[in-house]
Design a protein around this nucleic acid. Structure first.
Lengths: 348, 348
DNA sequence: TGAACAAAGCGAAACGTTTCGCTTTTGCGG
DNA sequence: CCGCAAAAGCGAAACGTTTCGCTTTGTTCA
């Protein structure tokens, strides 16, 4: 059906090798170049990437495995990643793990059978076992957002602990001492953010009742219920730190339905997602992740490895000397999050 | 590097043909089956889909071209589409057009060179020209959300006009007569929603000042500015219909910053996106698109075509007789949106 | 003018599968 | 135990490229 290089051969009288050379940017005599171009446009010829891939054993496809595709965090990242890869001549093939480690494992196998040249992974699970087939295949790998401890796989992420420390510190600086957290200890990102909260409490020698520490899933329900419970306490917190987007959503919802007002009764600071702050009244003060930089950095790192033909398992981690964060065991690139001011924090 | 079928041949002593038969589910003697399975797991063999695709000329990849990937509407759809395709043994390859018709054109070419078996397209532009190469290639095509008039390409979408009619009717039923719209006439979806609004006004014989009709881009800015302007009018509207997610975002933001209150001063109803209504106070009443059904329906339609080996240009449009919406020129599947009640509409 | 060298073009093999048509093996009934 | 049909297995060609090593053509300078 579709035209092939052989059809061009017929039309031009040139050899396959010459036409291939043209397709891959070699030198040709102008007249031959013209002949080929004419034939290509007449035949609507398009390179068959499957045939090309078979012989070059490079597919120019990058597998992207995300823990959950249907959220703003992920799809914004996907957008930026896509831009980067396209610019470099690669296409992303995106697989959604739906927060299911089994599906995640299958996704990796699947992409491998598609012979992707490399992978970007935002893991759903906590162990690196599911990536073993990819490591065996020797293709470069870059994690995003969540590192897998001890795996030795490079990761580009945000300094969760330091950023949440800063967030809570801001509450502290505004005079708050009864500070609660709604967060998670079920996955890495949540744990790291919890650590920041605990660290500040410890350093400032604040102690809070255990009911102030609400841990559960990163879900709207958890945020909603936890906020309700916090507000029901005899001595409710004067400020709440919310660990991610879904939690913010649920918590703000609960607060809106309660007689409490923000910030006069309760001050709020949240982690993640700029856009929602526009909707809430008053505007939320947030810790926002630099998504653009996160994606650019991860893409750059993977492309660099691809270029070098560097495989995942050959020891070195792709960071050159000038990288500030030296000495990190897995080769982590850690970017700072920034605080975006709203009006959701009151002085006490 | 990676194991091939030939390695299995060595290990088992069987022929390539037999091994291929195994891989494709043919009948083998149990002992041979066992041999092959042993070899496969020893060698970590994975089928090379490029080689397979070259000979079968089917890639088992479906191209998905979206006008913009970084929004909840699109990525929710992607999630559901992905589930459907994976279940049927296909993988989606997603391209983001970034609202740029040129990039959209390039995306189609790109996917074609990857030899995708079919395409799902949520178009950025308004004409079907960019799809011509795909039609020439004879692969099945399904549009989503936005039909391309006169193109003859099937489309799965929501009944925008009827739904926005209903939305505005609800305002009318609550006694509102000074009803404004913040929407768009720059693309199909927006136009159709505008039509619903205008239709109700006409049928109920209401006339509104032209300043009540705010048309522009589907952007936060447009929503924000328009709401500001509406509120500044000598006779501001008592109710506002907001045409999509970004507009809602901007409009609610402007309202929150103003002295006006919802719903006592201004009633609101919006089109799209359930999740945001949880954040706003009071909760918004919304017209919500059935994203799951939209995706399921589009996937089913495309898979059916794929199965039939039906190409886009062979006349019939893939709808069987039992489909309710007969006689639609381009083969449209139109699904109803539903109204989700909030507390953002007051009686006047 | 011709030697020497660079540039351009060529033929054939290779990539890892599937598939076609044929041969061999198996199992069954008589 | 034989014969036969059905089942299983086989070899080779094909898919559409790239690439290697070689040959031809063109160019330059003595």
């Amino acid at each position: 059906m579709a035209a092939t290089i052989k059809d061009i051969k017929e039309l031009t009288g040139l050899s396959l090798a010459t036409i291939s050379k043209y397709l891959n940017g070699g030198n040709l005599r102008p007249e031959n170049r013209a002949k080929i171009e004419k034939a290509i446009s007449e035949l609507h010829y398009e390179v068959n990437e499957m045939a090309r891939g078979l012989v070059t054993s490079r597919s120019k496809v990058i597998g992207v495995v995300v823990f959950d595709i249907a959220n703003v965090f992920t799809c914004t990242l996907l957008k930026y990643l896509g831009e980067n890869f396209r610019r470099a001549g690669y296409a992303p093939m995106i697989c959604d793990s739906q927060n299911d480690p089994e599906l995640e494992t299958e996704n990796v196998r699947f992409l491998l059978s598609k012979k992707v040249d490399g992978m970007i992974v935002i893991p759903a699970g906590q162990t690196a076992a599911f990536l073993q087939p990819a490591r065996n295949a020797g293709i470069p790998l870059v994690l995003m957002d969540r590192s897998l401890k001890g795996s030795g796989i490079d990761c580009v992420k945000v300094n969760n602990t330091a950023s949440s420390y800063q967030a809570v510190e801001k509450l502290y600086d505004y005079g708050h001492r009864r500070i609660a957290i709604i967060g998670s200890d079920l996955e890495i990102t949540g744990k790291e953010r919890l650590d920041g909260y605990l660290k500040l409490l410890e350093e400032k020698k604040i102690s809070v009742p255990p009911q102030y520490i609400k841990l559960g899933h990163h879900s709207i329900e958890h945020g909603y219920k936890s906020m309700q419970e916090l507000l029901k306490l005899e001595e409710p917190p004067t400020a709440v730190f919310m660990g991610n987007f879904e939690i913010i959503l649920g918590a703000v919802m609960a607060l809106n339905e309660s007689p409490f007002e923000c910030p006069s009764d309760v001050s709020l600071i949240g982690f993640d997602d700029l856009i929602i702050s526009n909707l809430s009244n008053p505007r939320l003060t947030l810790v926002v992740q630099p998504l653009r930089e996160l994606a650019d950095s991860a893409a750059e790192l993977l492309l660099k490895k691809l270029e070098k033909g560097e495989s995942q398992d050959n020891g070195k981690n792709g960071f050159s000397g000038e990288e500030s964060s030296a000495e990190l065991p897995e080769g982590e690139r850690i970017l700072p999050a920034r605080i975006v001011e709203g009006e959701s924090i009151a002085r006490v």
